[in-house]
């Protein structure tokens, strides 16, 4: 797959994904409130244009360079993730036989991008959000590692292309039923959402983005939505058979499955409360990580 065709196609798909993410978030939020969905498809666009037209605010003595770059890092990591996703047999933009490892590395660097975003404004709430995110980020990355390794075991390969092919008989979501629910928690953490949003939460008036106004706000929210698209595409690939499916072309199957994961993540965002940090750390180390071991065990026994 040549980059000249592939990269524009990927960015076009990402753009559609971004819009879908924003519209879904607005529409599902309104449905839960019990209000008419109305202009949920275009209201996010109006907000983006309005913010773009407004002043870019600064704080006292910020880290200008990193404040500017943090959304860029975050967005770039999302693009890397999306480029690893195969959209047809043996076709992905980055052809790498250790793509699961590269995605794991991208996940870890997300913690750095979010931290820099909270560090840069030189203000208390963003900084508290940044530190909290790092504290929760570590065990969440462990979760991700275990469930993705489990998903790779049937393929006997750390290549996402092989992981999809290994699901021709049976999808991983059935073979390893614990994997996808755990990975949804990882997706919510990577995209700063609902129960796993320790960086940009309401109790900190928006945390790392509390000081973002105008174009800064759009940049960060765009990167956040891009990461949602990428992480959901990875989830669809690792657990839902990626491009596999009858009749329709592979890329369409992949898009539909990605959208389905996105709906699940947005619903969880709105319906599940965020517990205090200490309680969440206990939940992850004492409950979720043992479940992830169990997932790995099921995958290993299945491979024997």
């Amino acid at each position: 797959m040549s980059l000249i065709v592939g990269l524009p196609a990927l960015l076009a798909l990402l753009l559609i994904g971004l819009w879908a993410a924003a519209a879904l978030d607005t529409a599902i939020g309104r449905l839960i409130v019990g209000r008419p969905v109305g202009m949920a498809a275009t209201d996010p666009l109006r907000a983006v244009v309005a913010d773009y037209l407004r002043q870019r605010t600064d704080t006292e003595a910020p880290d200008h360079l990193n404040w500017l770059l943090a959304p860029g890092y975050y967005f770039l990591l999302a693009v890397v993730g999306l480029a690893l996703v195969p959209f047809a047999p043996d076709q992905s933009l980055i052809a790498l036989d250790t793509s699961v490892v590269l995605w794991g590395a991208a996940e870890a660097v997300v913690v750095v991008a979010v931290f820099l975003h909270g560090w840069s404004p030189n203000a208390p709430f963003p900084l508290i959000g940044a530190y909290r995110y790092v504290a929760i980020g570590l065990p969440v990355m462990l979760l991700s590692m275990f469930v993705l390794i489990a998903a790779s075991i049937p393929a006997q390969s750390l290549d996402l292309r092989a992981v999809v092919e290994s699901q021709r008989g049976l999808w991983n979501v059935i073979r390893q039923p614990l994997g996808l629910p755990l990975f949804l928690a990882v997706v919510m953490s990577l995209t700063l959402r609902g129960p796993f949003d320790y960086a940009d939460s309401a109790d900190l008036a928006g945390g790392t983005s509390a000081e973002d106004g105008g174009p800064r706000w759009i940049a960060w929210q765009t990167a956040r939505a891009a990461m949602l698209v990428a992480a959901c595409a990875i989830a669809a690939t690792a657990f839902l058979g990626g491009y596999l499916g009858p009749v329709l072309p592979g890329w369409l199957w992949l898009s539909l499955k990605t959208l389905a994961v996105m709906v699940a993540v947005v619903l969880l965002t709105h319906l599940v409360p965020r517990m205090p940090v200490a309680r969440m750390l206990t939940l992850i180390w004492i409950v979720l990580l043992p479940i992830a071991f169990l997932d790995l065990l099921i995958a290993g026994l299945g491979a024997l």
Partner: peptide
């Protein structure tokens, strides 16, 4: 209380 724990949509219902 719901809003502080990031359930803004359910808080309105």
């Amino acid at each position: 209380l719901m809003r502080v724990m990031d359930m803004p949509a359910l808080a309105l219902r």
